[in-house]
């Protein structure tokens, strides 16, 4: 059986060197696995097999443990994220104000579901819980840029504006 990841790993030697530093930093720290995973994801953008293997070997924990932690927390991703990460807040305030419809509109526009990445790796969608901008509900963000009080139609327009951007 394969390692379960169909997306090719494209790590660079520079990334690996950085990861080794992270491992060295957390090797002796109790509870170092979480911050190490967080920093590893910061380096690679996601946590593929190759990265988790290096962490398991480097931190001397079983890969089951690494994978168990990586799949427990919503923040960790086993698949790469798009160039533009669209995040729709589904916190209570936003939900009450129709954030679910905003999310559906975006999903339909891009043809992917929340948690997925478009095949060209340009967009990925995620639903998040409360970005703390409840006064602006419903809220969506694109790479951290906040769009408040969005309607489904406006959300689609925002996506279109990013689609129009050249790489």
């Amino acid at each position: 059986m394969s390692n379960g990841n169909s997306i090719e790993f494209m790590g660079t030697p520079a990334q690996e060197a950085e990861l080794k530093k992270v491992i060295a930093k957390y090797k002796e720290q109790p509870g170092g696995l979480m911050p190490a995973l967080q920093e590893a994801q910061g380096i690679y953008g996601y946590l593929p097999y190759e990265v988790q293997k290096m962490l398991a070997e480097g931190l001397d924990v079983s890969m089951s443990e690494v994978y168990g932690v990586a799949t427990f927390y919503a923040q960790f991703s086993l698949v790469p994220k798009g160039k533009y990460i669209i995040s729709v807040c589904l916190g209570t305030a936003c939900y009450v104000k129709g954030a679910d419809r905003v999310l559906t509109a975006i999903e339909e526009k891009l043809g992917i579901k929340s948690g997925e990445c478009t095949p060209d790796r340009k967009f990925s969608i995620e639903a998040c819980r409360c970005v703390g901008a409840c006064g602006l509900a419903p809220v969506m963000t694109v790479n951290g840029e906040v769009y408040g009080k969005v309607t489904p139609e406006q959300a689609v327009k925002v996506i279109e504006s990013y689609m129009a951007k050249e790489d």
Partner: peptide
Amino acid sequence: IRLGAGAF
């Protein structure tokens, strides 16, 4: 500081 990672 320890960061949570998205788990209520």
